[in-house]
Amino acid sequence: MVQRGSKVRILRPESYWFQDVGTVASVDQSGIKYPVIVRFEKVNYSGINTNNFAEDELVEVEA
C-alpha cells in the first residue's frame, strides 16, 4: 500500500514516465480505477508533471 509522500517507480509501459521515480501526491479511497496521483520532476510533452496510476502499476522504492 503506497501512501502520500512515498517514492514510487512506474511500471506502466505506455506511460511517459515508465521506469521513472515520482512522489505520491495523494491516494483516493473512493474506489476509482486509478486512485494514486504521482508527481514527477520532469514534465511530459504537454507540460504536465502529474498523472494517475493504479496501485499495481507502482512499486515503492522509498517510504
Rank of each mutant, 00 (worst) to 15 (best):
I32H: 10
Y34F: 11
Y34T: 04
I32Y: 07
F40G: 00
F18T: 00
G31C: 14
Y45C: 15
K33N: 08
E62A: 11
I48N: 11
E62V: 11
G31T: 06
Q29H: 13
R12A: 07
R39S: 09
S6M: 15
Y16E: 07
Q19L: 14
Y45D: 15
V24Q: 00
M1Y: 11
E14R: 09
V21N: 02
R4P: 14
V21Q: 03
V24C: 07
K7A: 05
S26Y: 14
V27E: 02
F53T: 03
D56L: 06
T50I: 11
R39M: 13
N44D: 14
E41W: 09
V21K: 02
F18A: 03
K7R: 13
Q29N: 12
R39T: 12
I37V: 14
F40R: 01
G5E: 02
K33T: 08
N52Y: 09
V21R: 00
S26V: 07
V21W: 05
R9K: 10
R12I: 05
D56H: 14
V2L: 15
Y16N: 00
Y16W: 07
K42D: 07
E55P: 14
V27S: 04
N49A: 07
K7I: 11
K7L: 13
Y45V: 12
N51W: 15
E41Q: 10
G22Q: 05
K33Q: 11
S30F: 06
F18R: 01
E57F: 02
T50A: 07
E14G: 13
I10S: 00
R4L: 12
V59Q: 14
R12S: 06
V24H: 01
E55Y: 15
D56C: 12
N49T: 06
V21H: 04
V27W: 06
R39V: 14
E62L: 10
G31N: 15
T23A: 03
T50Q: 12
N49K: 05
N52Q: 09
V43M: 13
G5D: 02
A63G: 12
I10D: 01
N51C: 15
F40D: 00
G47D: 04
S30W: 06
D28W: 05
E14C: 13
Y34Q: 06
P13Q: 13
R9N: 03
V24A: 02
I32C: 12
A25L: 15
E41I: 09
V61A: 05
R4H: 06
V21C: 08
P13V: 14
V8S: 00
V21D: 01
V2F: 15
P13Y: 09
A25G: 04
R9G: 04
G31V: 08
Y45T: 14
S6P: 03
I10C: 09
F18E: 00
Y45A: 15
S26C: 15
Q29G: 10
I10V: 13
P35W: 13
R12V: 07
E60K: 10
S26M: 12
F53A: 00
V59T: 08
R4T: 13
F40K: 00
V21L: 10
M1C: 14
G22L: 09
D56V: 07
I10E: 00
L11Q: 05
L11R: 04
Q19E: 08
S46M: 15
Y34W: 09
Y34K: 08
E55D: 07
N52D: 07
S46C: 15
G47N: 05
V24T: 03
V38L: 00
V59E: 15
G31F: 09
P35D: 06
R9A: 04
N49I: 05
I37Q: 14
V59R: 08
W17M: 02
V61I: 11
V8H: 04
K7C: 13
I48D: 13
V61M: 07
A25W: 11
L11D: 01
E41D: 12
K7M: 10
T50P: 00
F18M: 01
Y16C: 07
V21I: 13
V2N: 02
L11P: 02
Q3F: 06
Q29S: 12
F53E: 01
W17C: 06
S30I: 05
I37N: 11
K7S: 06
I48H: 14
V43D: 08
Q29M: 13
K33A: 12
N51F: 11
P35C: 14
Q19K: 09
F53D: 00
V2M: 11
I48F: 11
V61T: 05
N52H: 10
D20K: 09
V8M: 00
A25P: 00
G22K: 02
V61P: 04
I48M: 14
M1F: 13
V21T: 07
R9M: 09
W17K: 01
Q19D: 10
V61E: 06
A54H: 07
I32P: 06
A54L: 05
S30T: 13
V61D: 04
F18N: 01
A54P: 00
E60A: 12
Y45Q: 15
S46H: 14
K42E: 07
N51M: 15
V43N: 10
W17V: 01
V43F: 15
T23M: 08
G47Y: 06
V8Y: 00
R39L: 11
E60R: 11
F40A: 00
P35E: 07
K33D: 10
K33Y: 07
S15D: 04
V2Y: 14
E57S: 03
D20E: 13
V36A: 02
L58S: 01
Q29F: 12
I37A: 13
L11E: 05
N49E: 03
V24I: 05
P13W: 10
A63N: 12
S15K: 02
V61S: 02
Y16R: 02
R9L: 10
V36G: 00
N51A: 15
Y16T: 02
G5I: 01
P13F: 11
I48P: 04
W17I: 03
D28Q: 08
Q3N: 08
K7P: 01
L11A: 03
E60L: 15
V59I: 12
Y45P: 15
N49W: 08
A25C: 15
N44C: 11
Q3S: 11
L11K: 04
V24K: 01
A54W: 05
V36H: 01
Q19V: 06
Q19W: 11
E57W: 05
G47R: 01
W17S: 01
S26H: 14
I10K: 02
I32T: 13
V38D: 00
M1A: 12
G5C: 11
D20V: 10
S46T: 09
L11G: 02
S6Q: 10
V38Q: 00
V27D: 01
I48Y: 11
Y34R: 08
A54Y: 05
R9Q: 07
D20H: 12
G47A: 04
V2S: 04
S30N: 08
N44W: 09
S6I: 08
I32V: 13
Y34C: 10
S15L: 04
Q19G: 14
A63Q: 12
K33L: 11
